[in-house]
Amino acid sequence: MSGWTSERIGDLHGRVAVVTGANSGVGLEASVELARHGAHVVLACRNPQRGDEALGQVRVRVPGATVELRSLDLAALASVREFAADLLLDQPRIDILLNNAGVMAPSTRQVSADGHELQLATNHLGHFALTRLLLPALGAARVVTVSSPAHRMGRIAFDDLDSEQSYQPWRAYGQSKLANLLFTMQLQRFADRAGLDLLSVAAHPGWAATELVRNGPAGSGWIGRVMSAGSGLLGQPAAHGAWPLLYAATEPDVRGAEFFGPGSWGGWRGFPTRITAIDAAYDTDLAAALWQRSVELTGVTYA
Rank of each mutant, 00 (worst) to 15 (best):
G256M: 13
R274A: 15
L97Q: 00
A75M: 11
T184N: 09
A194Y: 09
Q168L: 10
S294A: 14
A121M: 06
S107L: 05
N99V: 11
P92F: 07
G221W: 02
W265C: 15
E258I: 08
A287F: 05
P106G: 02
R36S: 05
F128R: 05
L135P: 02
D95A: 12
L187D: 00
R46T: 13
F271I: 10
W170Y: 12
V111R: 14
L134S: 07
Q110N: 00
W170A: 00
A30D: 04
L138W: 04
L130M: 12
S163Q: 05
V103D: 04
R46K: 11
A179G: 09
Q292M: 12
S2T: 11
L196M: 12
A140I: 01
L198T: 12
E53A: 14
Q57H: 14
H37P: 07
M104N: 03
L74R: 03
L178V: 07
S71R: 12
F260S: 01
L178D: 01
P63E: 13
T210V: 02
L196T: 01
L77Q: 04
V300T: 09
L161H: 04
V143M: 08
S294E: 09
F158M: 08
P262E: 14
L43M: 15
G235T: 08
P63W: 11
F260N: 01
P106Q: 04
Y167M: 08
T145E: 02
V226W: 01
V19Y: 01
E117W: 03
L187F: 08
L133D: 01
F271H: 12
L74I: 06
Q175G: 05
A150F: 00
V32Q: 07
H151S: 10
Q91Y: 15
L87M: 14
L120G: 04
W170M: 10
V213M: 13
A84D: 00
L198H: 06
S200A: 12
N23G: 03
D114K: 06
G206K: 12
Q186Y: 11
